[in-house]
Amino acid sequence: MTLFLSAMAAAAETGGAPEAASGGLPQFDPTVFGPQVIWLVITFAVFYFVMAKLVLPRIGDVLEDREEKIADDLDQAEQLSQEAGSVQDTFEGSLTEARSQSTQIIASARSDAQDRVNSELAKLDTKLGKQADKAEDRIAAEKASALEELEAVATDACEDIIAKLLGSPVDQNAIRDIVKQEISGRGV
C-alpha cells in the first residue's frame, strides 16, 4: 500500500506538471461537482424510471408466469399420478379376480376330467370283466368237452385193452365209472 502510494505520488509529480495546474486528484476539485451531480440525478432518474416501469415488471411477470406454470404442471402431474394409481388399483383388483376365476375353472376342469376318467375306467372294467367271464365260460366248456372226450377215449382204450387181455367183452358202463373216478380223482 505504501509502495503504491509513493508510486502514485511520484507519478502525479512527474506527469502532472505540464497541464494540471491544481495538482492532486481531479476528484477533489470542487468546480467539477456541480455538473456531475446534476447529470447523475438526471441520468439515474431516467434509469430508475426505465427499470421500475419497463424492465423489472417484464422480468417479474415472466418469472411469476413461469412459477405459476411450474406449479400448475406439478398439480396436473399429481392429479395424473393419482388417476394412474386408481387405474392400477382397479387393474390389480380385476387381475386377482381373474386369477381366482382361472383357478376355479382349472379345478372344475380337473374334477370333470377325473370324473370322466373314473367312469371310463369303470366302463372298461365291466367290459373287461364280461369278456373275462365269457372267456372263463368258454374255457370251462372246452375243458368239460375235452374231459368228456378224454373219458370216451380212455373208456374205449380201457375196453380195448381189457378185451384184448381177457379176451371177453366187459361191461362198458363199469369201465366208464372207473375212468370217471380216476380222472376226477387226479383232479384234472
Binding site: T14, G15, G34, P35, W39
Partner: peptide
C-alpha cells in the same frame, strides 16, 4: 500524461441551468 489525467473532466458542451453549471462533460 499523468495517471490522474483519466479522472479529468472536460466540457463537451457548456450549459447553465438557472445559474448552475450543468455542462455536459
Amino acid at each position: 500524461g499523468s495517471p490522474l489525467d483519466q479522472f479529468k473532466l472536460s466540457n463537451k458542451l457548456e450549459l447553465s441551468v438557472a445559474g448552475f453549471d450543468a455542462s455536459i462533460t
